[in-house]
Amino acid sequence: MGVSTSTGSAGTSTGDLEQVGAIGLIKAIDRFDLSRDVALTSYATPKHRRRDQAPLPRPRLHDPGTAVVAGALDPQRGAIERLTNKAGRSPTLSDVADELHTTPEHVLEALESDSASAPISLSPGTQRDGLDPLDTIGNEDHGFDLSEDRASLEPALNRLPRREREILRMRFEGGLTQSQIADQIGVSQMHVSRLIRKSLVRIRADLGQAQGQSRSRSA
């Protein structure tokens, strides 16, 4: 996965890069035309790069100090995963700080800088092309309705990528923890956390927009 690694940026884990890179590579192979006299590497590399570059989370860093914090995020992710596996429970901030020989405040700042970046969607496209990494779960796409105002909330929920809806269902209906979901779909717990948070924010924003439009029409 040399291309993915070479395009890495601060705040993006190697695992995330490899995940997106793999999808791009598979798509490139799928579309590669054998009848053309072009090497696969020549064809795939530009596409692979584009796929890597487009959705990468970009940390919103404002000063060199924060950049140092964000740069520490990859070992932090690794430490969280390691400690979770070792102890069989979610580590505390102090556990992570001890593991990385830093302070809990430093860890907290790094987490905050990470939460400001946009997570890579697990369903990058709208086409159901079978390349979604969550397709390996094998669950059906259960409906997940929002009941408070079904008429306006359903469209907001339905605008989410299919697999983000599935993650919401696993968390809020299935009662799975973030770590359990992460294990099932093969991403980090932090990534699951960010996807859940972003999905809920998006639903809320879509609802607010729909309510605003409704008020405008009735005025």
Binding site: S90, S94, E109, E112, S115, Q189, S193
Partner: peptide, 23 residues
């Protein structure tokens, strides 16, 4: 909101609240 998250995180750390529980 990030300010609020930082405050919650600071308190949670003093209580040994797990990372996932804090989240």
């Amino acid at each position: 909101h990030p300010v609020v998250r930082l405050v919650l995180g600071g308190v949670a750390d003093r209580l040994n609240l797990g990372f996932e529980e804090l989240d």
